[in-house]
């Protein structure tokens, strides 16, 4: 179980997330192959059965502990220590923002913004150092991933500007 509380009772709320999500996916999977030929179904049915059975055993174990009053339904363990919790949640949100903007802003600008805000959220105190770090790392990343390796990662305004400048040289 995740954590023992001062009361001596174990927190099990967050322990249930993986089994519940697993069962939900197993049920969806079985639904998705319901009309398929047997060869396409067989392993899915077997695995779904296995996963659900294991999860049920786990629930029974927790149920027994709950009946004895030795567990409590808390999700605290999931969020880590209270210190810096808000920053960590902000970091997760920042990853979401990265996914939403990278297609438009391109590699360099998105990476710069992500590293700048991310390092501050992660506990770096100096804005100046965060800016230097973000600028250095994002430019190095641009040189390595985009210019040298030529990956097809989305290009944005920064890359377009560089293109314009380099084109004018030619």
């Amino acid at each position: 179980m995740s954590d023992d509380t001062p009361s001596g009772r174990r927190q099990v709320g967050s322990d249930l997330i993986i089994p519940v999500a697993g069962i939900a996916y197993a049920v969806y999977y079985v639904y998705s192959v319901w009309d398929f030929p047997p060869e396409a179904q067989r392993s899915g049915f077997f695995l779904a059965g296995l996963l659900v059975a294991l999860c049920l055993i786990f629930f029974v174990r927790i149920g027994i502990l709950a009946a004895r009053g030795r567990v409590e339904l808390e999700f605290d363990a999931l969020l880590g220590p209270p210190r810096g919790r808000l920053g960590r949640l902000g970091f997760v949100a920042l990853i979401g923002a990265y996914l939403l903007t990278v297609g438009t802003l391109g590699f360099t600008l998105t990476t710069f913004s992500f590293l700048f805000i991310g390092s501050l959220l992660a506990g770096l105190k100096s804005i100046r150092r965060a800016a230097i770090f973000a600028a250095t790392a994002s430019l190095a990343g641009w040189l390595f991933f985009i210019v040298l390796l030529g990956t097809r990662f989305p290009l944005g305004p920064f890359e377009a500007l560089v293109n314009m400048v380099t084109s004018s040289w030619r």
Partner: peptide, 13 residues
Amino acid sequence: AAAAGTGGLFAPG
């Protein structure tokens, strides 16, 4: 390396 990199860079040009 230059071609790979500048393939993207010079495209809009």
